[in-house]
Design a protein around this nucleic acid. Structure first.
Length: 762
DNA sequence: TTAGATCGCGCACCG
DNA sequence: CGCGATCTAA
């Protein structure tokens, strides 16, 4: 190839990379300078801009792949970005760092762990681990007299770390006359000591310790400063101070591109500071800002609703999303009598959308709190709707999975007392509290970890049964540790589950839950096998790191063909043809916990805004007139945010919302409790509610029902607990998965899972 | 030490 | 309501 050929093919590639972009997008791809802020409204093509910008840098040979650092919000987004860059370049661009903040920091910390007094095989503690340690420390320091809960202390420590304060600087800045504050400082110090002894970092440490590492060891920082010539950060509005500091340190010699939208900042509770984006231009000399306002995702009706809602947040730079695609359909509103009624509406509507050709995977139901999934799942199961709860009660938070993982952690990191403690008596070995305490005090007297102390059991005077049990456990862990070098991760896991007797104890147990636990453990073995296949060189610690850093959104399987249920937080960055926002009520969205938090209401509004802007074509807003929480039922009031959407954009269906239902009335203090609002008839906030009568739900869903053996045929008459009398018009599937389509008079046509539906054949 | 029963208390969002 | 902590009996 001649030099000319090289040049021309390069030229073609770079031209192609900006072809089809709008002028602002093109500018964002082509701009070169020390600092660039891309203010990217929802759906404005920011991922496209980011990937094209990276590909553009590589194609023009302005950077090698290894000189690029791109920070994304989730691992899934990172994988997608890598794929898209490869696709654009037509070749793999190995060596690029495309990672989340946490995984980038883990990589740096593992390399430099010795400088911080850790080993490279350190454990990453999640918030549950943190609380478990704090619980013990609170008990030991008798801190409970100050009414300190593990969660409260965890939150204080987390906030401090997000501000880059360590235990020492925290202690220096407290009010010394406040005994509770002094106890907290003391616990903070012991907590850090325990993490160090256990060779562990918590989530917040991953970021803050990396910053401390850079500040304490300029030679390390310089290495990375010299490595990365281009740093790109996505979702910049959600960075906290520690993350900001990390970027600031790393980018001193590099070109920095950040992408964000202050209207989508929804992580203040974990320290996200909106000022990082609003003050970017002050922060970074010679910074340029490019605004992307054209939306390629949603219809104009959806965007108008979003714009109207977000304009109620004051003190924000004006921004107006627009689309060239036309108005589209109206937003659909629905007010149910109960959460189950609301869920039934959603299920029916999804059925109709699916019948009209929208795939299940292009539909999502979003909500403020995870507890809202219960009613939705109840109804979806009965309606035989294929769905998946994204995140939720996570796989890795199940007891049996945590137990199995604790074995692996204890094997990989023999300094980790938390993990060893967890498995000491799992399965039951007769090692109870008393034995554990003795082991722990022996360990601390001799400067050993608990796992190391197990091997010295002869020096303790336990009975023969306990001594044998401890020796077996010590031997098992020791053998498994030796196997790290030679065996695959899944082989180690399988062997430990068997040799420990854990699997056996679940299989022979009488607890019906344990059957499912065995299946979950099999699932975990597959996860390990899959990991090993994708990472042939990955070792046990790599596997543990990967598992520790999975995010809810990483869990989404685009090919699954199911409706996705998720929280509004998880939904950030995603988009669907049809979106259902459920529970748009005072107390839920905005959430009651936000009422007293400064800036809380504005953040709730942004959350609603994020939800609205996830929808491409169809948006549904729903609420329930009464909601059961904690076992008791209370009336609810439509969210104030609904009034912020122009009435002409919403088509309220079968709604009792406008009539007889108490309305939210703005008060002087936005923070006033909604309960104090007087109920009143009102003018309604959207459209004319219909007068159609509707079926009322009679109380809660009954528990497990079993219609096994019920034979239904077309033409049969049935009686349904909620919908009344109906006629079977179609039957599909067999056995437990059999569904029947039944026409009920006023309630309309429903598809039900025969096995669980509350129906009787007449 | 364990299993089983009872008590009481908390109500977001997450890597 | 549902979980985890605590109590009680074997």
């Amino acid at each position: 190839m001649t030099e000319f050929d090289l040049f021309s093919s390069n030229f073609d590639t770079t031209e192609q990379l900006v072809a089809g972009l709008n002028p602002q997008q093109r500018a964002a791809v082509e701009y070169r300078g020390p600092a660039l802020l891309i203010v990217a409204g929802a759906g404005s093509g920011k991922t496209r801009v980011l990937t094209h910008r990276i590909a553009h840098l590589l194609a023009k040979k302005e950077a090698w792949p290894s000189q690029i650092l791109a920070i994304t919000f989730t691992n899934k987004a990172a994988a997608e970005m890598r794929e898209r860059v490869q696709h654009l370049l037509g070749e793999a661009a190995d060596g690029m760092w495309i990672k989340t903040f946490h995984s980038a920091c883990v990589q740096i910390l593992r390399r430099e762990s010795a400088r911080l007094g850790h080993d490279a095989n350190f454990t990453i503690y999640d918030s549950g681990d943190t609380r478990a340690i704090l619980k013990r420390l609170i008990r030991d320091t008798a801190a409970d007299i100050h009414k300190l809960t593990p969660a409260a202390v965890a939150s204080i420590i987390s906030n401090a770390k997000n501000e880059l304060a360590d235990a020492e600087s925290y202690a220096r800045n407290i009010d010394q006359s406040d005994p509770a504050a002094r106890v907290i400082a003391e616990i903070f110090t012991s907590y850090q000591a325990e993490l160090r002894r256990n060779n562990a970092f918590d989530f917040d440490d991953l970021i803050s310790e990396t910053v401390h590492l850079f500040r304490a060891f300029p030679d390390v920082l310089e290495q990375y400063q010299n490595k990365f010539r281009h740093i790109l950060v996505d979702e910049y509005q959600d960075t906290n101070h520690a993350q900001y500091a990390l970027i600031k340190e790393l980018a001193a010699k590099a070109s920095l591109t950040v992408v964000g939208d202050s209207d989508q900042s929804i992580y203040a509770f974990r320290g996200a500071d909106i000022r990082n984006i609003t003050e970017f231009e002050k922060d970074f000399k010679n910074a340029t800002t490019i605004l992307l306002e054209q939306n390629y995702r949603s219809t104009q009706n959806i965007l108008s609703a979003a714009n109207a809602v977000i304009s109620n947040n004051f003190d924000r730079p004006a921004k107006n999303l627009w689309t060239a695609e036309g108005d589209g359909e109206k937003i659909v509103g629905y007010t149910g009598y109960s959460a189950h009624d609301e869920a039934q509406f959603i299920a029916d509507e999804i059925d109709a959308l699916h019948a009209s050709g929208i795939a299940y995977r292009d539909i999502s139901v979003m909500y403020r709190t995870n507890s809202q999934t219960r009613a939705l799942e109840d109804i979806f199961i009965r309606s035989a709707l294929p769905y998946r709860v994204v995140g939720g009660t996570k796989f890795y938070e199940r007891q049996e999975i945590k137990d199995a993982m604790a074995y692996l952690v204890a094997i990989a990191n023999d300094r980790d007392d938390l993990a060893t403690r967890r498995i000491l008596n799992v399965p039951k070995r007769g090692i109870g509290d008393a034995t554990e305490t003795q082991l722990a005090s022996f360990a601390s007297k001799n400067g050993l970890s608990i796992r190391q102390a197990l091997a010295e059991v002869d020096q303790l005077s336990f009975g023969p049964k306990i001594t044998t049990a401890i020796k077996q456990l010590a031997e098992l862990l020791q053998q498994a540790q030796l196997a790290i070098e030679t065996d695959s991760v899944d082989a180690i896991l399988r062997s430990v589950l068997e040799k420990s007797g854990y699997l056996e104890s679940l299989k022979t147990s009488r607890d019906p839950q344990d059957e499912a636990r065995v299946e979950n453990l099999e699932e975990l073995v597959s996860v390990a096998r899959e990991f090993q296949r994708n990472n042939p060189d990955g070792n046990l610690t790599d596997f543990l790191n990967e598992v520790a850093l999975v995010a809810a959104a990483d869990d989404i399987d685009d090919e699954s063909g199911t409706v996705s249920l998720m929280t509004l937080h998880t939904a950030k960055g995603l988009e669907y043809d049809a979106v259902f926002l459920a529970g748009i009520e005072e107390g839920l969205l905005p959430h009651r916990m936000s009422f007293l938090v400064p800036g809380g209401m504005a953040e709730e509004r942004r959350l609603f805004y994020v939800g609205i802007t996830r929808a491409r074509k169809k948006l549904h807003l729903s609420l329930a007139m009464s909601r059961t929480t904690y076992g008791d039922t209370e009336g609810s009031i439509p969210s104030r945010f609904l009034q912020e959407i122009p009435a002409s954009l919403i088509d309220w269906r079968e709604s009792g919302a406008g009539r007889g239902l108490p309305q939210y009335r703005p008060s002087i203090a936005e923070s006033q409790s909604y309960r104090s609002q007087p109920a009143s008839a009102s003018s309604g906030y959207g459209g004319t509610p219909s007068n159609k009568p509707k079926t009322e739900w009679k109380g809660a869903i009954s528990s497990v029902r079993n219609n096994e053996g019920l034979q239904l045929a077309v033409g049969d008459q049935v009686e349904h607990a909620d919908f009344g009398r109906g006629k079977v018009i179609a039957v599909a599937g067999e056995g437990a998965k059999q569904t029947a389509e039944i026409h009920f008079g006023s309630a309309g046509k429903k598809r039900l899972l025969v096995k669980v539906a509350p129906i009787e054949k007449l």
